[in-house]
């Protein structure tokens, strides 16, 4: 039974991936233990490895990207699910968002280097001069910064948010809209107090899944974030993420550094799997809930 074999292979593949990475990471896990997670130094020359700044960078860049992308994605999803626009125009908007998803990560990176970095450098310096007393906006402002990476990440996760939010908005039963209009509500009163609350779990799920995507996104971030392991509160200073760390250091690493990078990779797998399982669970519950309304 080739088909049975293929199925078993697929299932074991995930276990094999996790197992292989943990196995290769074992020297670092046994040597550094949990100190790896809480350590703030990463210097391969002295064989000191700590990923706390990188973990914070990963969480901060993904969260910021989500914060920027969620309103935009929700606005587009509303456009695509309600009848504001004639179907032809909706089709064009949908095509444009799908095009965003088709552009390779490395092209976003290249574009970011020549468009977003100069912009952030120019306006970042102005902002840091005026509002530098706020720790998040403290100078000196760099082009290669957490903010730059988050801006581009926001674009990259937009299609995820739009697609999943749209399908949960479309799933809101038509009778609910009709009921709301019949009570005299305007279109936006209907959207804000009936449609969005009903679709809320699906919108939350789109956010969680987009967060997972943002955490794992590698190339554009590696090209834009500045790759610095120094802890900083400012959005305008360089930072790093787990995936960018792997992308930058793997090719030249040897000895215990490979092992330490495998440890970092294992953490990334754990985080993204956790986030994705949570997102899928929320999504599944939504589908059940809206199925009951029909």
């Amino acid at each position: 039974m080739a088909c049975l074999l293929a199925s078993v292979l697929t299932i074991t593949l995930l276990a094999f991936i996790v197992g292989e990475i943990l196995f290769k990471a074992w020297p670092a896990i046994s040597k550094f233990g949990l100190g790896f997670i809480t350590g703030i130094q990463w210097s391969p020359n002295r064989e000191v490895f700590g990923v706390l700044p990188v973990l914070i960078g990963t969480a901060a860049s993904s969260f910021l990207a989500l914060l920027l992308a969620l309103p935009l994605g929700l606005a587009i999803a509303l456009f695509l699910s309600e009848d504001f626009l004639p179907p032809a125009i909706r089709q064009i908007i949908r095509f444009v968002v799908e095009l965003l998803a088709a552009i390779p990560s490395v092209v976003y990176g290249l574009w970011g280097i020549f468009v977003v970095i100069p912009l952030v450098q120019k306006y970042g310096a102005l902002v840091a001069a005026k509002l530098g007393f706020i720790p998040f906006l403290a100078g000196p402002a760099y082009g290669n910064s957490l903010l730059t990476a988050s801006l581009v990440l926001a674009l990259m996760v937009l299609p995820t948010i739009t697609a999943i939010s749209r399908s949960s908005l479309v799933a809101v039963p038509y009778a609910l809209r009709e009921g709301s209009y019949a009570l005299g509500a305007t279109r936006w009163e209907t959207i804000l107090s009936v449609i969005i609350p009903t679709a809320a779990p699906g919108i939350v799920a789109s956010g969680i899944l987009a967060f997972g995507r943002a955490m794992g996104e590698t190339m554009a971030v590696a090209m834009l974030i500045g790759n610095s392991q120094r802890l900083s509160w400012s959005l305008l200073s360089p930072s790093n993420t787990l995936s960018a760390l792997l992308a930058n250091q793997f090719a030249e690493a040897d000895g215990i550094q490979v092992s330490a990078l495998m440890y970092a990779a294992a953490l990334l797998v754990l985080l993204t799997l956790g986030v994705n399982i949570a997102g899928e669970a929320v999504l599944r519950r939504t589908q059940k809930a809206t199925a009951g309304l029909r």
Partner: peptide, 12 residues
Amino acid sequence: LLTGIPSIICGV
């Protein structure tokens, strides 16, 4: 779950 795994992990 595999669709949610970051592409760099495939490389690792």
